[in-house]
Design a protein around this nucleic acid. Structure first.
Length: 102
DNA sequence: CAATTGACTGGCA
DNA sequence: GTGCCAGCCAATT
């Protein structure tokens, strides 16, 4: 498998994701802004979906603006709970109270 | 190479 | 809160 995505883009995204403190969550848009691509929130999701392939990163601490977890990814909920992020329900976290602020 | 899709966001109703 | 539209970009088909 080649590095399908630009390593530069990967580095920027993952470096921000890695800075998310335990017990906090960040949104795709927030990360997108930090890497200079505010309108590319989808890219964060795309890269994060393959982040495990590039390395180990807390991609489970990244959720969408509504606080919803990644569809089709059941592990994410347990990971967040294990880090001290309570779930409002099966699919949403209390991002309103736990969103990461730099 | 063209079209489609997707772990999205912000604006407006 | 939900729904529709437009924009942005890489991976997949």
């Amino acid at each position: 498998m080649n590095r399908t995505l630009n390593e530069e883009l990967i580095y920027e995204i993952l470096s921000v994701v890695e800075e998310i403190p335990v017990g906090k969550v960040a949104t795709y848009g927030q990360i997108a802004g930090l890497i200079g691509r505010e309108r590319n929130a989808r890219l964060i999701g795309r890269v994060l979906s393959m982040a495990e392939f590039y390395g180990r990163y807390p991609c489970h601490r990244v959720v969408n603006q509504a606080g919803r977890l990644a569809p089709g990814w059941k592990e994410q909920r347990g990971l967040l709970e294990g880090e001290g992020v309570p779930m409002k329900n099966e699919t949403h976290v209390a991002i309103k109270l736990y969103q990461w602020e730099c």
